[in-house]
Write a protein that binds this DNA or RNA. Structure first.
Lengths: 137, 137
DNA sequence: TGAATTGTAACTAATCTTGTTACAGTTATG
DNA sequence: CATAACTGTAACAAGATTAGTTACAATTCA
């Protein structure tokens, strides 16, 4: 269970919220569609709220709705809101600094990571939540 | 220790082999530069050998050298040779199939995964091992 | 006042990656 | 031809991450 599916779940529940319009949706209902525990959903919704993609309300008749229109939410924003880690990891232990390659490889790989991340965000910026909605239908 | 650093290590040791030219390099030596166990290196070299990027020889005075010239080895080939998993994972449990979103979201996400993977490979195809060598120096 | 809901902490279970030991098989070399 | 030096590979331990779960405080509506 060590594979990160936060982006998948985020797109899923945001699509659900998009279909709900202005009505507030409860974490319990979203959890049933995703087939997981409500707490998993609420954890994720907290991140999405920090990124201003959703607005949650506590208390009775509380719940969550989109903070922006589906056509204004790019998938790249969702990605940045929930995906923390990098595409690939650097060495767990620092390489031998007495070796010319070992000493300088980290800088090269770091630059590469940033370029790849830009590529992904650029690709995901091509789609909005509205596009996902259309694909679902 | 659950972050995948195979691509990092692969680029590292292939760069080492590139500096060694036609001479065979031992896994022990590579392991010292990466600062890890020789078995970790040999496991990775097996993958790189399957992808025809290196040629290893067993026995005394054995070792590994590049199977192609550095300027012909694209970083995208290295990526494909060692990175198995996807950028993001789909839901561990299958979503509720009675929900229109739950039923169709997997197809959308799968398509997205493939597009992202293409983006990454396209970006990594811009660089060869020769380019990395130049950056190191 | 009471019921319903979010936010969050704490813990468990499953899974992945690396590190390590061990050893069979292969090859160069004295 | 015997020995030493390698690779290839299996098996297992250790560490880290993620999702799932329980529990409960805080908030809000009726």
């Amino acid at each position: 269970m060590a594979a990160n599916s936060q982006f998948s779940i985020a797109v899923h529940i945001l699509t659900m919220l998009a279909t709900a319009g202005d009505e507030r949706t409860k974490s319990d209902y979203l959890a049933q569609s995703v087939n997981t525990n409500p707490v998993v959903i609420r954890r994720l919704l907290c991140n999405l709220q920090e990124a201003d993609l959703v607005a949650s309300h506590v208390g009775a008749s509380g719940g969550t709705r989109l903070a922006q229109k589906p056509e204004n939410i790019k998938l790249s924003e969702i990605y940045k809101a929930v995906v923390t880690g990098d595409i690939f990891s650097l060495h767990p232990k620092t390489p031998n600094q007495d070796c010319p390659v070992g000493k300088n490889i980290a800088a090269v790989l770091c630059g590469l990571q940033k370029e790849i991340d830009k590529s992904i965000e650029h690709k995901l910026a091509e789609y909005t939540l509205r596009d996902v909605l259309k694909m679902i239908e």
